[in-house]
Computed example of a mutant assay.
Amino acid sequence: MTHTYKITGMTCNGCRTSVENTLNAIEAVREAKVHLDQEEAIITMDSHIPTTTLQKALPEKYTITEKKDSTVHNDVNNAFAKAEPKKSKLQQLQPLLIILAYIAVATALLNYNRANWDEAMLDFMGLFFIVFSFFKILDLKGFPESFRMYDPLAKFLPAYGWLYPFIETILGLMFLMRLEIPIALVVTLIILGITTIGVTKTLLDKKSIQCACLGTALKLPMTEATFIENAIMIVMAAIMLSAYL
């Protein structure tokens, strides 16, 4: 069943992301889509959820009420949903895959005449962190809200969500400039390890939330690709750290 609700209190895309992720995290919510301009949320649920339950899940500054004409509105939305083809996971993750491909090509060009590809791994990790931190910094208000929906440390310590993009920037510079590489590798293993735990739990719970790996500028779903992306970086960091020990 699908219901349409009016939501007041949203002032930016960060608010929209926060509300959408909060609603998607509620049990029995199959999918929630929030529109900032229309100040509304379209929620598909497995069983009826009282409006009071939705309100309790949201921060106090947001007010949610069910629209009286939601039945008519839902019919229209359902008609459009049937007419509009659903994107496959590959199509949804296209921006992420393109960015990773560009990073890989840039790494290859920087290291094509080197015999030791350990240097290439450091360059890849450095470019990865710099590029991904850039997208997160584009929306410093929205990113922490999205990030804490699945990162265990960000849930416990909200300030960590604000600092995370800058931690990635610093790590990127350390890898590219070859500064204190062992320390950078250990920090990489710690922060990506924590995030991967949260990603794994989200995938196992089959929650439909937005991945914050590229901030909130690009809407990417949380999928197995997010896990694989983190796993690759963790494996690379472990290999490089073993070489330094």
Rank of each mutant, 00 (worst) to 15 (best):
M1P: 12
T2W: 14
T4Y: 09
Y5F: 13
I7A: 05
G9L: 07
T11D: 14
T17I: 09
V19Y: 07
E20T: 01
T22L: 09
L23M: 10
L23Q: 11
L23V: 00
V29A: 03
E31W: 01
E31Y: 11
E31V: 11
K33W: 02
V34F: 07
V34A: 08
H35L: 13
L36A: 06
D37S: 15
E39Y: 06
E39R: 11
E39F: 13
E39C: 07
E40T: 14
A41V: 04
M45K: 12
M45Y: 12
D46W: 12
S47Q: 15
S47N: 14
H48N: 15
T51Q: 09
T51M: 05
Q55W: 02
P59I: 10
E60V: 10
E60R: 08
T63F: 03
I64N: 03
T65I: 03
E66F: 00
E66N: 10
K67L: 14
K67Q: 10
K68W: 00
D69W: 00
S70Y: 09
S70H: 13
H73T: 14
N74C: 10
D75W: 04
V76C: 04
A79N: 13
F80H: 15
K82Y: 02
L90S: 09
L97R: 02
L97K: 14
L97T: 14
A106P: 01
T107V: 07
L109E: 12
L110E: 08
W117C: 03
D118I: 02
A120N: 05
M121R: 10
D123Y: 10
M125H: 08
F128C: 01
V131E: 10
F132L: 14
K136G: 03
K136W: 10
D139E: 01
L140E: 01
K141Y: 01
G142E: 06
P144D: 03
E145F: 12
M149F: 09
D151E: 06
D151V: 05
L157H: 06
L157K: 07
L157S: 06
F166G: 02
F166Y: 14
E168Q: 08
I170A: 12
I170M: 05
G172Q: 04
L173W: 00
L173F: 03
L173N: 02
M174H: 00
L176K: 06
R178T: 01
L179Y: 14
I181R: 02
P182W: 03
I183N: 11
T188W: 05
L189S: 06
I191S: 04
L192G: 01
I194Q: 03
I194F: 12
G198N: 09
V199P: 11
V199Y: 06
K201Q: 15
L204Q: 13
K207S: 04
I209L: 05
Q210V: 01
C213M: 13
G215A: 05
A217T: 10
T223E: 08
T226L: 14
I228R: 06
E229K: 08
N230P: 11
M233T: 05
M233L: 14
I234L: 11
L241T: 05
Y244H: 15
